[in-house]
Each structure stands twice: as C-alpha cells, then as structure tokens.
Nucleic acid binder design. Structure first.
Lengths: 123, 123, 123, 123
DNA sequence: GTGGTCTAGACCACT
DNA sequence: GTGGTCTAGACCACC
C-alpha cells in the first residue's frame, strides 16, 4: 500500500480497512491481524498500527476481546451505514467541488459519461 | 473564510484563490492583495500570507514584481489547465472511491441522477 | 560555514548540500540531520533549517518519512543530473559573461591555460 | 532587457552598462541617458534609474555635471580595469564552482572544447 | 524524536 | 508600501 504523505498513515489504513469491510473482503465478526502483524503487513510502526485499532474502535467498527485480539463488530447495520456514509461523503465532496469550479449539471453529467465510454473501450 | 483545522491554512487559501480564478472572479493580470492586507482579510499572520503567494508562484499561477506586488499570470492557458486539473482530480477521487466501495456504474449514475432530482425539486 | 550576506542562508545551505551529494560525501538514501540538529550545526533557526529541506524536497533531492526524518532520494539518476545541471549552469554563465565582455575563444582558452600553469606551479 | 527576479534590477542594469563600456558600445566621456529616459528605455521605475547612477558613481565609472547630466569617466585605465576585474571574477567563480563539483582539470578542458566544437558547428 | 504549521515581530532591499 | 528573509518560540501529529 502506498501512502499519501499529507494524510496520517493511520487514517489511510483505517479508510482502507473500512473499504475492505464494505467490499466484503473482511466480514462481520472476523478477527483482525494483531498490531504486530498489521505493522509487518503494512510496513508501518507498531505504534501506528495500535492507533489504527484505537480509531476503528472509536468508530464502533471493531472491538477488543482481552487476550484474544480485535474483532469486527457483529452489527449488521454497520456495513450498510458505512457504505452509505462513505458514498455520500464522496458524492458531496465531488458535487460541491465541481459546483465551486463552475461546472453546470449538464457539463458534469457529460464528463462522467465520457469517462465511462473511455473506460468501456478499455475493458 | 472558515478554516478546516486539519488542513494547513495556506493550502486552504491557495485552493480558494484557485477556485476564484477558475470562476472568473479573479482575472488574468489582476493584482492580488498585499501580504499584509491578505493577512488582515483572512485574519492570519503575514508570514502565512507570504507562504500562500510562494505556493501560488510555484504552481505558476502568479508572479511577483519586486516592490510592486503579486499578480496573476497573464498566461491564458493557465485557467483552462487549472479548471481541467482540478476537475479531473475531483473526478478521479470520486470514481475511484465509489469503485472501491463496490458501486457499479449503474448504481453510481443512478445516485447522481437521484441527487439532481432532489436539488431540482429544491430549486 | 560562512554565509554571504547577499544570498539567502537557506539557498546557500541548499547549494552546499547539493555539492556534497555531487562530491559523494552524502550518499543516496542517507538520512540528513534533523532540522533541529542542522539548526545547531549551521547556527541557524530551526525554521530556516526546515526551509532548506522543503527546498530540497521540491528539487526532488530528498524526501521525508513522517516522524523519521529526511532522506536523500534513492534515484541514481539524480546525482548525475545534479552534477550535469550545476556544471552546465556554471559553464553557461561563464561563457556568456566572457562573450559579453568581448573575449574571443582564443583569448578565453589562453586565460584558462595560463591560470592552470599558475596553479600547477603552486602544486 | 529581461530581469532576473532574484537580483536587484539596478544591479543588473549596472552590470549591463559596464558590459557595454567594456565592449566599446559606450565610450569614455559619453553622456548617459537622463534618469527619466533610462527609466523609459529599461521600463523601470525612475527611482531605480537614479539608483543605478548612484551605484555607477560610487564605482567611479561615471560622474555627474550639475545641470548637464551624467557622463562616463575619461579615465582610460578604467575600461581596462573593468574588463580585467569582471573577467577574473567570472573565471574565479567558474573554476571554484567546477572544482567544488569535483571536476578535474582534464574534464573541465574537455567540456569547454566540446562546447566550442558544438558552437562552431552552429556557426 | 521527527517534521509541519503558525504566530509574532523584526530587518532589509526594492519600487 | 511591497515581498523576502530570519529569529524566536509555540503547538501539533506522527513514528
């Protein structure tokens, strides 16, 4: 995983894990890597790894069982919420940003459709 | 202007000025506020204001005439480039993010159209 | 290190570091002094030291690992480029300057050879 | 004339005038432009123009006759001195710089000869 | 410990 | 008045 130098590493990993949950690659109740293993996996400092779990716990995405490790919450609503929240945040940033640049709705839809045609050609 | 505490002030102002240029509120060749005036305007330190101009200069968006002040470049291509770059960056973040969340093209277009109908109703 | 009062300190240190890299005294991947240590070393303000690293980063000569320090880039081409660029800049200033003064090629070569004989005698 | 933003304009013009004297385009005893005309000629501020004369006077290159204008000194030695000083300064900066970059005498002579062959081909 | 940012205040050269 | 540089000292997030 490549890190953007301007965003805290732990934040980037947190977002990455949330994405994996939404995509279903990590499932409800799954045990997460130990901080040590996560540090190896992402090539980060163990302190940073433990901060990631702290953040995930705060967001009620996982919880810790003493001596057993850290697990994804069992709450089924969570995934749905996660997906919706992340998507609407993305959407808002995008639409607001484009509006700030003076793009009209028509231009905007045009751009997205063009983009899609391009990627269709590449498929 | 309100600042997001997680992003450097100078970056936020830089982005703001770039938006104003793209929107046409600031025109090619325009003189920008003096660092001191900008400091007053945005309620920041003159040093921070100075940093903003340095960043804009690096991005070839403005240039300095010694003792006279800082001016928007006269290069007509610049605005076009700026608009395109900022838009494609927004687009990329958005599309990539939605794809990462597992949204298909159809879902995505659907969401945007829904969003637009909402805002049309509010107009 | 003694500073020329007419050139910004940070620029002088930047050039100095670039020279050390070209000479091989600083190697690819080397960790540079921390900003605080550099400030002590050169007897400058930590802010000024920080500016030096920022400038070097812009020139793609070094990069920062968050919380770890600043390192020389690993790019092997960089040193070659650096040496070539610095040399050709020196050469250009010199040749253009001498030409402006009305020196012909023959005079110029003559001068350099004379200079070399002098220094050979001193060796 | 194009100005380098990092060097005072008046210095650049002073150097330019000195070059013109060395090249013989401006002769001993010649009357220089009035500050106003010089300001127009170089598209600079009249204050800057007057500073140029101040500097040239300090360097004993010209002198002012009240009500008549500013004139190049009649001292014949001056041109010779000027040429020698400017050339040896150029030479020193060049040789020292190349030495700092680790260029040996052989490399250096090689580079200059190569450069000359190039420009010969272009002649 | 590391760099990044910001404030405050000062001095300077240039126009 | 204009930007450029520097010092001093502070706070912060990150590793």
């Amino acid at each position: 995983m490549e890190f953007d130098n301007n965003i805290p590493i732990y934040m980037q990993v947190v977002e990455n894990i949330k994405k994996e949950i939404v995509k279903g690659n990590i499932k409800l109740g799954d045990k997460l890597l130990s901080t040590r293993d996560m540090a190896l996996e992402y090539k980060i400092n163990p302190n940073t790894a433990s901060r990631i779990y702290k953040e995930l716990e705060q967001q009620k995405i996982c919880f810790t069982k003493r001596g057993l490790g850290t697990f994804i919450t069992e709450d089924k609503e969570m995934v749905k919420m996660l997906r919706d929240n992340m998507a609407s945040k993305l959407l808002e940033v995008f639409l607001q940003g484009m509006e700030d640049l003076g793009y009209t709705k028509e231009e905007l839809i045009n751009i997205i459709e063009t983009k899609y045609k391009e990627s269709d050609l590449n498929d």
